[in-house]
Amino acid sequence: MSEELTPEKELDARGLQCPMPVVKTSQEIKNVSVGGVLKVMATDPGSMADITAWCKSTGNELVKMEQGDGVFIFYIRRTN
């Protein structure tokens, strides 16, 4: 599982406010190959719900979500 989660790309969305983490994620996922993983780091607490909603709406898979030190980390697998 863990080796599968090696991100192909990383997006540092720390310090950005709504709706930028989601907007940047939607742009960055295009640079990841289908099946690849994008790691997103954000500090906006709303991103927890928002990235989840974005994945649900776009069909990309939210593989894992972590939080610590006020940073939220998302591992998103591009599905289409």
Binding site: C18, P19, V22, V23, T25, S26, Q27, A53, W54, S57, T58
Partner: peptide
């Protein structure tokens, strides 16, 4: 504009 950019981001 926040809603529009977010809607676009959501495909």
């Amino acid at each position: 504009f926040i809603i529009a950019t977010t809607a676009a981001a959501m495909g």
